[in-house]
């Protein structure tokens, strides 16, 4: 072929050399490709291959209302196909003149963890591995030092003498470190004070998880599993719709409920009334009253300047 390349004496030996090197090259190439194919074999098990539509889906704020309707319909279809139940998925927007706050009475909390499980049920968290948004700590009487916290306390009966309990979940900061560090704006704070995540935009770098001082964020290390009969069909786009593998999630004050005028699930289930939730801009609201009248209430790790909308208070 390359007869001009005669300087190296291709004329005499040319044909044989070429054939031999050609054969050798093809053998190497074939072996290489076969080895590559073999090494890629686990990809055959990939069930959840992103469709073109999902791959190209735009960022939350760039979706027009019609596009959003399409996306919501797609989510409903996918969920129905997977769980055999058609969900009611809405894109609930923050209400005007509303800024949510949460107050938790540490004197009352008995550490029963009913809130933890009500939250999992309400928000369609993966059951295996189980993802929980609320972590209840058991602290020794008189200390707020988290390093003394027991996370896995498991007594016969609560409350335990000599200890108090402190549930921790997303603190919905006014100055959230997680939002600041996200490289793709997949998480942001809405006008009602709720920090939300677009599960379809998150790239799963987990920088927010490293940044959160309250250990409030959770990552889907694998495909979430929810038993079909446990799916809560009342869903919101930024709330409890099922998540995919490889994205972050966290407490969002039950957007699907609270942006619809209802209380969060953790509040409703609390047997001792330790949890109060409402619009802090409304002076007559319970949270407004608590923050105005209680002599002492605290924001966790106030010194970090995150300014949580989650307050802990005491009966004095």
């Amino acid at each position: 072929m390359n007869s001009s390349n005669s300087a190296s004496g291709a004329v005499q030996t040319g044909d044989g050399m070429n054939r031999r090197s050609f054969l050798r090259a093809s053998a190497v190439l074939t072996t290489g490709l076969a080895a590559l194919a073999a090494s890629l074999k686990p990809l055959m098990e990939l069930e959840d291959f992103p469709t073109a539509e999902r791959f190209m889906q735009k960022y939350y704020t760039e979706l027009t209302p019609t596009e959003m309707d399409k996306v919501l319909k797609r989510i409903a279809d996918e969920t129905e196909a997977q769980y055999g139940k058609r969900p009611h998925v809405r894109d609930l927007k923050p209400m005007d003149g509303v800024e949510f706050a949460y107050c938790l009475n540490l004197t009352r909390c008995i550490g029963c963890r009913k809130c933890v499980h009500a939250c999992v049920k309400e928000n369609n968290q993966s059951r295996n591995p189980e993802i929980q948004y609320i972590r209840v700590l058991r602290l020794p009487h008189g200390s707020m030092d988290m390093e003394k916290a027991e996370h896995h306390y498991n007594p016969e009966k609560v409350p335990e003498p000599g200890f108090f309990n402190m549930p921790v979940q997303c603190q919905q900061c006014k100055n959230p470190p997680c939002v600041k560090v996200c490289p793709v704006h997949a998480t942001w704070t809405d006008t009602d004070g709720i920090t939300v995540i677009d599960y379809d935009w998150c790239i799963g770098c987990r920088y927010c998880e490293a940044a959160c001082p309250y250990w409030a964020r959770r990552f889907n290390f694998t495909k979430p599993f929810i038993p079909k009969d446990k799916l809560n069909p009342e869903m919101a786009y930024l709330g409890n719709r099922p998540r995919r593998q490889g994205v972050m999630e966290k407490c969002h004050f039950c957007i699907q409920r609270t942006r619809d005028g209802r209380y969060p699930a953790c509040l409703e289930v609390c047997p001792v009334g330790a949890r109060k939730f409402g619009n802090v801009l409304d002076p007559s609201s319970e949270v407004g009253t608590i923050l105005r009248t209680k002599r002492v209430f605290i924001q966790l790790k106030e010194e970090l300047g995150t300014s949580p909308r989650f307050f802990y208070y005491f009966d004095v």
Partner: peptide, 13 residues
């Protein structure tokens, strides 16, 4: 590459 293919399918678990 083989190990990454596994991770890609099953996640960071």
């Amino acid at each position: 590459i083989n190990a990454y293919a596994k991770q890609f399918v099953h996640g960071l678990i």
